[in-house]
Write a protein that binds this DNA or RNA. Structure first.
Lengths: 327, 327
DNA sequence: CTGAAAGCGCTAACAG
DNA sequence: CTGTTAGCGCTTTCAG
């Protein structure tokens, strides 16, 4: 692969001029420009981003830590982030953490060594590990440290909305399937849901899933919800888990929404794919994704960001799983 | 961020020794080791992978071009690739191409400038663009150039198996929903399916989808398959498209598998999530993913790979959408 | 407008 | 076992 020196020599010109041409700063005569263009074309030259990064201290790369790229919510978010970052001139390092502290820690080191310009840490399982990181970090969902900007949806309110919708649809015997305790977001959905139920004097049964959706474990733990027929309304902590629960219910011969109504959380595409389609609480994925990148790039550019906590509104998306059934 | 010189100075030792310590090659006295360890800890030093890459000409990064990370098949594959690559010491640049030639071309330049050690180009829409690339490339599904190693599943045979299964299940009025013409894989599924049908003297109706699954367009184009009631068997080019078709069918009040049987392709997790669960032709995602990375790393290490075309076996995964219905 | 030169952080001879 | 040194490809003063 050719370098700036080669192309300078072939063009009969100094490397400084070539560099100026490449970066479009400083003066370069029209004559020089043309010669350079020709040689670059001829030698199929591409500037070395590594060398450039070493000097400028900006690698134009972003590390994206995500629990699991197969989770529809996270992969939709990843797609948004990737696209927006690309348009801003950044390339994404993909890091699956599987909600595993060790993996995250390990990737943190890798990202540091690659001198990424910034890090997006979604649902981080770490804390002190970030103390000595001098790379800008934006946290999504789980908080990391006080000085690290955190973005999340209004999960608490989302939980409330979920309950109110189920209640309004006539459900009184209600089950909540909650996420693991290490997910701040689903904990808030849980408390919001419970608080709203308390206000209406409705008792909620709880089942806790021990981890988020994994491709390897699609089957719902049947023992955990054996008395599924007892309920007329179920709130599941996210859409993909709701999908697995729906399959279990349909397989048990129970009709949705006639016998039991279901509501999920995320508004990931999976909800629209199911039949009946899944009522859910939407997180504005696009807004979240672009905001995360925007804030991160601000930090990278050394701009001050005063607000440390961003909470983005959630809203009800009504679909078929909570339809009122009438003959 | 501190550098090797700083840590050498603080340890009262030369940078060469520190470098040797870091790379664990050459002799370093026990005494020196200890001093270095202390200082590294103290200064929270992480070696600069960029500088290292510049010298060694191996950035330890891989560019992964993928049509769309929200497609379950591709995100499962991405997860496998990411995991395996990480274990081999490589980090992944995520590049969504959306099956768009321009985006792919653009990313190709970006990856080149970042001097990735290798590129995985899945379902490439480019050809000549790769002529001057002097970075090892592995193609998945679509062929790029004669000298570029291509890996794919046995899509032709998969198509045949799909027909035979439908036929064996008693279907005679059969529809195939095929993928866009620019997907080599789905074209082969199509011809395999048709060839098998011809052998049994069965006429197949064809509908062509104009693109792969996109989050933004979940609804099946209803006009394209208006006479859906005419069929007792449908083969859809991949699982996620099959999911959208299934929703359409169920919504039309048609029973699966009683009135119509469905078979997909990929064996992505989505098939197990649906109700009824989707019969499909499996591509061995894990095998494909690890093979791709293995071969790429061989190329990166300068090893010769003689076979240019790898075709991996596919097989039938029977589930509920093709069950024989008996009262 | 242009070029020479220093230096970003690292590795690998090579000479002790 | 260790240190000196050149150089990877680039950018940026600073003199012309």
């Amino acid at each position: 692969m050719s370098n700036i020196r080669e192309i300078a020599k072939k063009a009969g010109i100094s490397i400084a001029t070539v560099s100026r041409y490449l970066n479009d700063n400083g003066y370069v005569s029209e004559e020089a420009r043309k010669k350079i263009q020709v040689v670059i074309e001829e030698l199929n030259y591409t500037p070395n981003a590594l060398a450039r990064a070493m000097f400028t201290k900006n690698s134009k790369t972003i590390g994206l830590m995500i629990p699991n790229i197969s989770n529809p919510f996270f992969n939709q978010m990843a797609a948004i982030i990737e696209d927006y970052a690309k348009n801003m001139g950044y390339t994404i390092f993909l890091c699956n953490t599987d909600d595993d502290k060790e993996k995250e820690k390990n990737y943190l080191e890798v990202l540091q060594s690659h001198r990424v310009a910034g890090i997006i840490a979604s649902r981080s399982q770490c804390k002190e590990e970030y103390v000595n990181i001098d790379i800008p970090v934006i946290a999504f969902e789980n908080h990391i440290l006080d000085n690290i900007i955190t973005i999340s949806s209004d999960n608490y309110n989302g939980g409330k909305i979920a309950f109110e919708h189920l209640y309004q649809r006539g459900c009184r015997k209600i089950l909540h399937i909650k996420g693991p305790q290490c997910f701040e977001a689903t904990e808030l959905r849980y408390t919001g849901f419970l608080d709203a139920a308390k206000a209406k004097n409705i008792k909620i049964d709880i089942v806790e899933f021990q981890s988020d959706f994994q491709v390897k474990m699609l089957e719902v733990d049947k023992k955990s919800i054996k008395n599924i027929r007892d309920y007329d309304g179920i709130f599941v902590f996210n859409d993909i888990a709701a999908a697995t629960v729906m399959r279990f219910i349909k397989k048990s011969g129970i009709q949705i929404p006639q016998e039991v109504k279901i509501i999920g959380f995320d508004n990931s595409f999976i909800g629209e794919l199911l039949y009946p389609s899944l009522t859910t609480i939407s997180q504005p994925i696009e807004k979240l994704g672009t905001m995360i990148v925007q804030l991160l790039i601000k930090l990278i550019n050394g701009e001050e960001v005063l607000i440390k906590d961003y909470i983005i509104e959630t809203q009800l998306i009504e679909r078929e799983t909570t339809k009122v059934f009438k003959l």
